[in-house]
């Protein structure tokens, strides 16, 4: 091998090492810790589970402790419908919210992509502007808007559209509104990127051939933006399934979501193994849609190549 190519291959290796190192440190290592806790037993001690591995352990101690690990916490899921109910309810709420976010974000993305470059910068800036304020405070603001004595109900009653408060606050509707609002930019930006890159000449050609704007949209713009739709939907859906803050603040006490069930296991029952096991199952369930996305992307790239 010539020295130049050797140096290049070393450089390539370094470039790859950085993201892999990142994943190892911030994804795999914490995952291993959580996995280990999920196989432990809860105990009234510091920390509240056993066994605890120690740097000073000799080989025999490590083997003994490894033997103490078990899948008991995972078995717990099948004895109680609570976990399945929580998962299902989380997925349903997240799916509805993702769909609504898409419906709201698409016209926005289209408008941004079709405006002049100067206006475009301003519009994108506006879409990202809410990030300058804390997420918590923005969700809190929705309480003031949605509650029975809040801005929305006062306004609707003032203009005579309703006689009694709508009672949105502390319901699943409020959670969906909160998710749509909070995650809108995550949908908007991939959509914008997908639409903006499209060749305008295609639409002109469609018009020349007699297609109505709506037909041109359905046949050209929408299919070409599918990657943006999938990326945006995943970016909204995945965190929304595990969302805790929005249901806690805007939802009612009867809202069952996996985030809250995890919270109960962890904070109320002090059962870290059960909470960790639930987290791992959640992760496995969410890896599914991610793999689908990955395959779609790969196929896309192959088609292009």
């Amino acid at each position: 091998m010539r020295p130049a190519s050797k140096a290049r291959s070393r450089r390539n290796w370094l470039v790859i090492a950085v993201p892999y190192g990142w994943l190892l440190l911030f994804f795999l290592a914490p995952f291993a810790l959580v996995l280990k806790i999920s196989l432990s037993q809860s105990a009234l001690s510091l920390p509240p589970y056993a066994p605890v591995f120690d740097w000073s352990d000799d080989f025999r101690a490590i083997v003994e402790k490894l033997q103490a690990l078990s899948f008991e916490s995972f078995a717990g899921f099948f004895n109680d419908s609570l976990y399945v109910d929580s998962y299902v309810s989380s997925v349903v709420i997240a799916a509805i919210a993702t769909l609504l976010t898409l419906v709201v974000a698409y016209p926005f993305a289209l408008a941004i992509a079709r405006s002049s470059p100067k206006v475009r910068t301003i519009l994108i800036g506006l879409a990202i502007a809410p990030f300058w304020t804390s997420f918590l405070i923005r969700v809190y603001a929705w309480i003031t808007i949605l509650k029975d004595e809040g801005l929305l109900n006062h306004f609707l009653m003032r203009i005579g559209l309703i006689d009694a408060p709508l009672g949105i606050f502390a319901t699943n509707t409020a959670i969906v509104i909160g998710i749509v609002y909070s995650y809108l930019p995550f949908m908007l930006l991939p959509l914008y990127a997908a639409i903006e890159g499209q060749d305008q000449a295609l639409l002109e050609a469609a018009a020349d051939l007699g297609a109505s704007p709506w037909r041109a949209f359905l046949r050209i713009t929408l299919p070409l933006s599918m990657r943006g739709i999938i990326a945006g939907s995943l970016l909204v859906f995945i965190p929304a399934v595990g969302e805790f803050v929005i249901p806690d603040l805007l939802g009612g006490s009867d809202t069952l979501m996996i985030g809250r069930t995890l919270w109960n296991d962890f904070f109320v029952n002090r059962d870290w193994p059960a909470a960790s096991a639930a987290a791992i199952v959640l992760l496995i369930l969410l890896v599914g849609p991610l793999l689908v996305y990955e395959r779609v992307q790969l196929r896309d790239e192959k088609v292009r190549a």
Binding site: S42, D80, S81, D254, L256, T261, N264, N269, R270, D271
Partner: peptide
Amino acid sequence: DQAVQKIVTREWTRVKTGK
């Protein structure tokens, strides 16, 4: 204690959610 706490939390979830 730990065992009773799990029952109480589970029952409390039932109180709040009906499930």
